[in-house]
């Protein structure tokens, strides 16, 4: 009976993975299609990559998206780490309930609401204090930081909760100043979480269409905004080429990160084994 059930589980697993990956493979396949009509095979060709590389619009959008993603990831990691420290380390403080609500709400907030409310804020602010004058890079970055920091905070919080605090206390008992403890003990332990948070914030920003299209202004097209406006009316083979490049870059990044993590884990296991051997 157990055998029969596991066979069903394996079948579902294969079906599920095929469901997840077949569309992505087809997307890549059609990027090498010579035909202008995406799903009709017209022979192998890389002409759509040429078309893509010759489009200045695409490069502008890529550069804008990357700039926003970089600044967003850095600030979101900073603010998210501070928020997580505040949530986990300070127990009760005035306004904690509101703070915990605000830091977790963006995770479940529909994007259309986040986008709408931030746009209305920017318009109101421009009315009152004259800033932001033009919407684009700055407003998109602020919007992205606001929702990305919530994701970073979740990652850092779980890391802080699982962290052994006796090391910090030991350092403090041995006379280390608070800033020294933070720099030498807490931050190195949080570093992998912060890196994961940074990468997540970076990807969330690169991926966001809805919030960016609310808070952007004329002339500032991020990559998702550009792609969306092109595919709105149907299939575009050069978008397939762009998609292939994006998917390959991301996949290589994720696989590399997974491999590094796996190696680190193996090293740690080995260290532990060595340590337990010397104990006996």
């Amino acid at each position: 009976m157990i055998h029969k059930r596991s066979r069903w589980v394996i079948a579902m697993l294969c079906f599920g993975l095929a469901f997840l990956y077949v569309p992505i493979f087809l997307l890549i396949l059609y990027s090498f299609n010579h035909s202008k009509l995406v799903p009709i095979w017209g022979g192998f060709s890389t002409r759509w990559y040429t078309v893509l590389f010759e489009s200045p619009e695409v490069w502008e959008a890529v550069m804008l998206s990357l700039r926003i993603a970089l600044i967003n990831a850095t600030f979101a990691t900073l603010l998210g780490t501070l928020a997580a420290l505040a949530m986990v380390r300070f127990g009760r403080f005035k306004g904690r309930t509101l703070f915990s609500g605000m830091i977790s709400a963006p995770l479940v907030m529909p994007e259309v609401i986040t986008g709408l409310s931030l746009l209305l804020l920017f318009i109101t602010l421009a009315d009152i204090i004259g800033w932001p004058g033009a919407r684009g890079f700055t407003t998109i970055t602020i919007a992205h930081i606001t929702f990305s920091m919530a994701y970073v905070a979740v990652i850092i919080q779980s890391r802080l909760i699982g962290m052994d605090q006796s090391i910090e206390e030991a350092a403090q008992d041995l006379g280390a100043k608070p800033l020294r403890v933070l720099w030498d003990i807490t931050l190195p332990i949080l570093a992998p979480g912060m890196l994961a948070g940074w990468l997540l914030a970076f990807t969330l920003s690169l991926d966001d269409l809805v919030i960016a299209s609310f808070v952007t202004g004329p002339g500032s097209n991020t990559l998702p905004i550009l792609i969306f406006s092109r595919i709105k009316l149907g299939l575009k083979p050069d978008i397939n080429a762009l998609a292939t490049l994006i998917i390959l870059t991301v996949s290589i990044g994720v696989l590399l990160a997974a491999w590094l993590m796996w190696r680190q884990e193996k090293q740690r296991m080995q260290d532990r084994k060595m340590a337990s051997r010397t104990d006996h």
């Binding site: 993975l17 997840l20 990956y21 569309p23 992505i24 087809l26 997307l27 059609y30 995406v38 799903p39 990807t203 690169l206 991926d207 269409l209 998702p224 792609i227 969306f228 595919i231 149907g234 299939l235 978008i239 397939n240 998609a243 994006i246 998917i247 991301v250 996949s251 990044g253 994720v254 696989l255 997974a258």
Partner: peptide
């Protein structure tokens, strides 16, 4: 990794894949 990978790749492009 196979389950997480699509989560990191562009949401918009994965929807676009279904259009084709």
């Amino acid at each position: 990794i196979l389950v997480i990978l699509p989560f990191w790749t562009s949401f918009l492009l994965r929807v676009y894949a279904w259009m084709g």
